[in-house]
Every structure is written in C-alpha cells, then in structure tokens.
C-alpha cells in the first residue's frame, strides 16, 4: 500500500491497494499525471491539503482472507481528511470478483466490504480510465 500525491498539490491523495494484475495498470496510470514536480510522488498522509480528498483505489482480486485488511485501510484512510474516502473499484476482480467470482476464496466485489463510489470495468481497465476517473473525482475536466 502506498499514498500518492496524484497532482503534486496535496489536493488528491490516492491510496493504492494493489492486489493483482490490475495493479500494473495503476502503475501505468501514474505515468499519465500532469507534468508538475511531485505529481504521483509517494507521500504520507500529512501531505493532504486542507479541503483535499483521499481516494482509495482497489485494483485486483480481493480474497476473503484479505477482505478485513482492505476494509481496515479504507477506514483508516477516512480518519485523514475528516470524511470517508472516495473508493474506486478498479477492474472486474475488485468490482465483482471478475473471472474468479465463483471461487470459494474470492470476495465477490469490494462493495461487500465498503461503500464504493465508482466501478471501472475492464480486465484490466486501461490506465487512461483510471486517470479520467481521478480527474472526474477531483473536479478536473477529463482530458
């Protein structure tokens, strides 16, 4: 898990919960941030600016074994910024269990654990989809 200052200004701190292949697309999306110093840099929660928001991105397969840890991270993220974080379910596995929905060990979507704000389809979704969703959440016009 990492905290990234997506736009380099503390306005949007992205908490990356990368659990399987979709995490590679998350990684690729960090290459699409605006070319300003500090964008997509790994930071700690103190970098969050006043009025900024925390966005938790769950990318990859959530297993029942890991589910409590995922819920705990979302809870913890809410203690910064004073409001519940925006939760993005990135990819089929995070949204519904994806190709593994029938497995005894796989959680059938992160919505069973926490409230989700945006579901991004794809297996995996393209990195541009994550960049656009974050632009939308942070009130920037999607490019």
């Amino acid at each position: 898990m990492r905290w990234l200052d997506w736009y380099g200004d503390g306005s949007t701190i992205v908490v990356d919960i990368g659990l399987a292949c979709c995490a590679l697309e998350f990684e690729a999306a960090t290459g699409l941030v605006p070319a300003v110093p500090g964008a997509a840099a790994t930071v700690d929660a103190t970098r969050l600016a006043a009025g900024g928001r925390v966005v938790v991105v769950v990318s990859g397969t959530v297993t029942d074994r890991l589910a409590p840890a995922v819920a705990a991270i979302v809870d913890a993220a809410g203690s910064y910024g004073g409001q519940r974080p925006t939760v993005v379910s990135f990819g089929a596995c995070a949204s519904s269990g994806g190709p593994y929905w029938d497995s005894y060990a796989v959680t059938k979507g992160v919505e069973q654990l926490v409230e989700v704000d945006v579901f991004v389809p794809g297996c995996p979704p393209p990195p541009e989809a994550l960049a656009a969703v974050l632009d939308d959440i942070s009130g920037r016009v999607a490019s």
Binding site: S95, S96, G109, V118, F119, V120, P121, P126, A129, V133
Partner: peptide, 12 residues
C-alpha cells in the same frame, strides 16, 4: 469505445 465507469454495479 470503452465501456465506461459507473457509480453503481447495476449500471454496468
């Protein structure tokens, strides 16, 4: 065209 993100699972 990419299948677009949605705010609810049912909308997908």
């Amino acid at each position: 065209p990419q299948a677009l993100p949605a705010r609810t699972l049912t909308a997908l």
